[in-house]
Write a protein that binds this DNA or RNA. Sequence first.
DNA 1: CTTATTGCAAACCATTTGCATCCGG
DNA 2: CCGGATGCAAATGGTTTGCAATAAG
Lengths: 145, 145
Amino acid sequence: MDLGKRLRSRGYRVTPQREVIYRVLQENEGKPLSLDDIHSLACEKRPGLGLTTVYRTLDLFRELEVALPVHLHGDSQYYEINEGKHHHHMVCLSCGDVELLEACLIEEIEDIVRDGSDFMITGHCMSLFGYCPDCLERGRGKGSR
Amino acid sequence: MDLGKRLRSRGYRVTPQREVIYRVLQENEGKPLSLDDIHSLACEKRPGLGLTTVYRTLDLFRELEVALPVHLHGDSQYYEINEGKHHHHMVCLSCGDVELLEACLIEEIEDIVRDGSDFMITGHCMSLFGYCPDCLERGRGKGSR
DNA sequence: CTTATTGCAAACCATTTGCATCCGG
DNA sequence: CCGGATGCAAATGGTTTGCAATAAG
């Protein structure tokens, strides 16, 4: 599970940029990061690291399944480190906070699909939207946009 | 449930462009369309209809909940008409075909969330990925990208 | 008539590409 | 050394904005 091995075994090189970006993902396990987030955080550790490198490194990490793309509401792409623990996300519509949800009903869903169609399911994505406890408490539960 | 009423009651005007775009969505119920899809189809009915108008009209339709944004794999935004029938999608990774899935386990998921967190769930999205019966038959079930 | 709507062209901006330089192995 | 990786600058392409002309009510 060490980055160097994973890179070398596929013929890729181990560079400080890749290590820094990996570290950023590791240190934010459970918190999906946008490419800009990753860039800023990586720049703190290695000033001058180019945004282009972040884009290219995340394409690579996704290919190697070192990182997983996360689909949240909105346009921008988020990533998080792949620790092999499947989970979903709950996104607060008020503050944008993301909470993890370890439960997953994919097996039940696959059963339903199997009974109703010949589709072969190989993957899925799911996100929940709502309001986090903090925002509910502060009365930002509904009206807010 | 007529478009004219829905528009006028909110102070918007009924234009041929909006009617054409609405008709395109109606005629493709169950098939998520990209903005370009909508534009091409709308242009068949009304040549010269601008792409900008498609963007603006879908923002409006989304606001009025006449259309719903659909999150599939990939980058582009898809839309489908909102007929009030909640459902999800199964996307074929080989041919891109989209099949509807009327089943939804949101209530079960909400139960799980309620037991494990104080998050208040108000919405969700889910998509399944895999291979459609046709592609499986043609042996495009796995290896293909 | 009044003003929302449209369509065009220009502006925007996130992402990608080309390329000279750099550096991992 | 050699070829992959990086960072910059330029190109790209989808989406948005400004604005004059058009048309809904």
